[in-house]
């Protein structure tokens, strides 16, 4: 083949030279659009957040603008109970949400991975809330939870609870109510990812385990779970970051209320920057949130020995 090319007519050599010359610049050309977009609309904003975190910057109080050193950070850690409250609530929210989503998602994935009559319909229905937006989820659960014609009315008809209860405006019920609403939409995410990974478990392993007399529970612990480990670690991490940052559900469902009970750190930051126009302080809080996320992710990946099993 190579000989044939060498003997071929003159046009062949230049073409080959071109083929070897292009690849050097080609990869850069190919990633250029993505790189430029990310530089302009992610890297630059991040840097400007870091910059503003060291500034007093409030467009409504321009006379105070200027370099602030670490004042914003000191204020957050020593002098702002709302920062601690919202941070604690965020942690609580992420922990409960991701934990329950993983648990139910794993269970569902294992169930719909079985062979049974009506499986594809079952899968489609189980996964269906996956694509529903946070705002639409809020809309649906606002309808379900409203005090006049919501689910509590029909429960009261059956003698459970009282008429006119609104779970979203009571400080003792708002947390579980919001958790359930977000679970409804969040579980399918885990179920889909885990089901995808279940497809690649080698069936030979189960057959071997069966020959050895391992029970189904043992097979799950010793074959399925280790196989899923990396997928679980990665999806819980991504989901935790996502749950931490995501504001649309709580913003529209509870607005952070009642009495600030369900305000997460990002919601607090959004309020600080959008309503109070305190960009400098909001930037400092953003920086803190960013560092916390990064630190927790590193620790999590290290503790879970991510990717360690295979290589």
């Amino acid at each position: 083949m190579a000989q044939a090319a060498a003997v071929a007519k003159p046009p062949a050599p230049p073409r080959r030279r071109r083929a070897s010359a292009t690849p050097r610049r080609l990869p850069y050309l190919l990633i250029a659009p993505a790189a430029l977009l990310m530089l302009g609309f992610i890297a630059y904003p991040v840097i400007s957040v870091f910059y503003y975190s060291l500034q007093n910057y409030n467009p409504t109080k321009p006379w105070r603008n200027g370099y602030a050193g670490f004042d914003n950070f000191v204020h957050a850690f020593t002098d702002d109970p709302q920062f601690w409250d919202t941070l604690t609530f965020s942690a609580q929210w992420v922990f409960v949400e991701v934990g329950l989503q993983l648990l139910f998602g794993l269970a569902l994935a294992l169930i719909v991975n079985q062979t049974f009559v009506g499986r594809s319909l079952g899968r489609a229905l189980v996964f269906s809330p996956w694509a529903v937006s946070g705002v639409l989820t809020s809309a649906i659960w606002v309808l379900l939870y409203n005090s006049q014609t919501g689910i509590t009315r029909y429960l009261a008809d059956m003698g459970v609870g009282e008429y006119g209860t609104s779970w979203l405006s009571d400080t003792s019920t708002v947390f579980p109510a919001a958790i359930v609403a977000d679970l409804w939409r969040g579980v399918p995410f885990f179920a889909i990812l885990i089901l995808a990974d279940l497809q690649s478990v080698s069936k030979d392993l189960y057959e071997a385990a069966e020959v050895d007399g391992a029970s189904r529970i043992k097979q799950f612990w010793h074959i399925t779970l280790p196989h899923l480990k990396d997928a679980i670690v990665l999806s819980t991490l991504l989901r935790a970051v996502w749950e931490f940052n995501n504001v649309d559900l709580l913003y529209t469902l509870t607005g952070g209320g009642p009495a600030g009970e369900t305000t997460t750190l990002p919601l607090y930051i959004a309020n600080t920057s959008v309503d109070a126009h305190n960009f400098g302080y909001a930037s400092a809080l953003t920086t803190v949130a960013f560092v916390i996320l990064l630190f927790c992710s590193m620790v999590y990946l290290r503790l879970s020995k991510f990717g360690g099993g295979e290589k």
């Binding site: 992610i42 970051v241 990002p266 959004a270 960009f279 953003t286 996320l293």
Partner: peptide, 21 residues
């Protein structure tokens, strides 16, 4: 690495600088 790092950058927290841009 940069691609992975962006996963930790919350769009919600970059609202203000993005708005300015």
């Amino acid at each position: 690495l940069a691609l992975l790092c962006t996963q930790f950058v919350p769009g919600a927290l970059l609202l203000v600088p993005l708005f300015q841009i």
